[in-house]
């Protein structure tokens, strides 16, 4: 098989994930796009392992290192851990703020003109959080 096929597919999937991360507003959809990007990297690792392990086998017949496939397994495990932690963070933010839209979480943004932060809070449909809630959310 020509190596260009899996590598080009991986590049296109990665760019699809980049578009999703930049364009989506819901935090969970952003996490889905991150998963797409991680899978593109996995496809790259598997393809390069299928290419290079055969070449290494010709030179060293008893050295089955298979770094690409081992790293793919590690990446899958780390992605599973990442999605668990990410979803826990998103759920904590949703419980504190009543929204999971990344555009509305502007507490650490620069105050442009003095109306942006309060406007975002008002649009989110939640009462202005007290200082205690804020400290708790950032803890």
């Amino acid at each position: 098989m020509h190596l260009a096929y899996p590598v080009v597919l991986s590049a296109l999937l990665f760019c699809t994930g980049v578009y999703g991360v930049l364009a989506r507003r819901n935090a969970i959809l952003v996490l889905m796009s991150v998963e797409l990007m991680l899978n593109a990297v996995n496809l790259n690792l598997v393809a390069f392992d299928a290419w290079l392990s055969r070449a290494a086998q010709a030179a060293f017949p008893h050295d089955g290192l298979h770094s690409g496939q081992a790293l793919t397994l590690f990446t899958i495990a780390i992605a599973a851990a990442e999605i668990g932690i990410g979803l826990a963070i998103v759920l904590a933010v949703y419980r504190n703020r009543g929204t999971a839209d990344v555009d509305r979480l502007r507490d650490t943004a620069e105050d442009r003109g003095g109306s942006d932060g309060t406007d975002a809070t008002a649009r989110a449909g939640v009462p202005a959080p007290g200082s205690g809630e804020k400290a708790e959310a950032s803890a």
């Binding site: 080009v8 590049a11 699809t16 578009y19 930049l22 364009a23 989506r24 555009d103």
Partner: peptide, 24 residues
């Protein structure tokens, strides 16, 4: 579901796709 910067995101994604595919 989509934020206001869809156009910028599309531009970045297409530019990255063209560059990556060309290089690989």
């Amino acid at each position: 579901a989509d934020s206001g910067n869809r156009g910028v995101a599309l531009g970045v994604a297409v530019a990255a796709a063209v560059a990556l595919v060309w290089v690989v």
